[in-house]
Design a protein around this nucleic acid. Structure first.
Lengths: 193, 193
DNA sequence: ACTTCTACTGAACGGCCAGTCACACTATAC
DNA sequence: GTATAGTGTGACTGGCCGTTCAGTAGAAGT
């Protein structure tokens, strides 16, 4: 089976994706997911015979790949400048639920089987870090951006995206507003221009 | 009782602090903590009659306050410049286990009682964000630093510290080395000088 | 000598969890 | 009208969880 396009299965995935992203693997029970959908927990096994882990792996994979595609399109559609690309990346993350990469790597992935863990770990780097790193390297080739470590810079941008969400929760502002607050800090640094 | 200075209790706290910080509240069981100490799980209730939650709240509180003191001393001992203070802050975080603030706020705290949750939430901001914010405001008054939003900048620095740990895990380098990689990015931004 | 305190144990409790399975209810297809 | 496939249910199991509690062994106090 390549991919069943059942509407019911799709609904299960959507609910699971939201809950897992919010609370993490261990803190979400199958009963939580079922309740959200108005069905019994046993029914989830019809759509995902592999149980909780299969469900988690499926939606996490899908979510990560959606981030890769979204990031690549956002960057591609943003024009040439470092600032425009960076704004597009931050706007992408600001308009989606926060991705807690540290929690994934430290808490969620260790709770699943090793083969799944390894695949998801690689995928996470591939989908979240690499698109940003590629963008930064491209910008440097075009003469923009200093001689910073692009790997660290990519992780810093990811972290800044999480800082935007944290700040939004603390202040009640919209994440997308805060992108314009974050941009000058990332571009020109704390020392200002 | 103000504070029992039992060595055994201290050992329990140390083990619990390490495990909770690594994996989060839900993912750590009392049996994990007891095993680490070579004792039975029931024995933990001798030192912490309040059970898992009391243990978690106690060590989290202690850990947060240690961060506040460490940060304030690091900043105070670093000299006047923005760069020196920032280096001290990053070095402090680099030489301690990573603090996953997002996981705390989103996954750990919602699992404990509301009164504890509220107190720990305030404490987390007070111990992690505020010292950095105060430092940035002081630097600005002395004429250093641009007109950036200090609340966001403080969260960005915290996030950068987590990015340092993430990078260390990915590359195998020591976190304290990576501080010098992170500093120019934070000070001068991605655009370079 | 006895009591008291500290540190810990073993066994059990109820509760929630993931997972299993036989069964029921639709619809549409033949 | 009957077969068939998609979707969901109720009742259950075994296991791990946090928690409780009576009990113990040794050290310290009196």
């Amino acid at each position: 089976m390549v991919s069943t396009i059942s509407a019911a299965r799709e609904r299960v995935q959507a609910a699971a994706e939201r809950l897992f992203a919010e609370r993490g693997y261990k803190a979400v029970t199958l009963r939580d997911i079922a309740q959200e959908l108005g069905i019994r927990q046993a029914s989830l096994y019809y759509h995902f015979p592999g149980g909780k882990e299969e469900l988690y792996v499926t939606v996490t994979e899908r979510g990560l790949q959606a981030h890769r595609e979204g990031l690549e399109q956002a960057i591609a559609g943003a024009g040439e400048s470092l600032e425009a690309g960076l704004r597009a990346v931050l706007q992408w993350f600001a308009s989606h639920p926060p991705v807690d990469l540290a929690r994934m790597l430290l808490a969620d992935f260790p709770a699943i089987s090793e083969e799944h863990r390894k695949r998801l770990t690689e995928l996470a780097l591939d989908c979240l870090v690499r698109p940003i790193e590629n963008f930064l390297q491209g910008a440097r080739k075009r003469g923009e951006g200093g001689a910073v470590d692009t790997r660290f810079a990519a992780l810093a941008i990811l972290s800044a995206a999480e800082a935007i969400h944290a700040n939004a929760r603390l202040t009640g502002k919209e994440p997308s507003e805060l992108v314009e607050t974050a941009l000058p800090v990332l571009l020109k640094g704390l020392a200002g221009s």
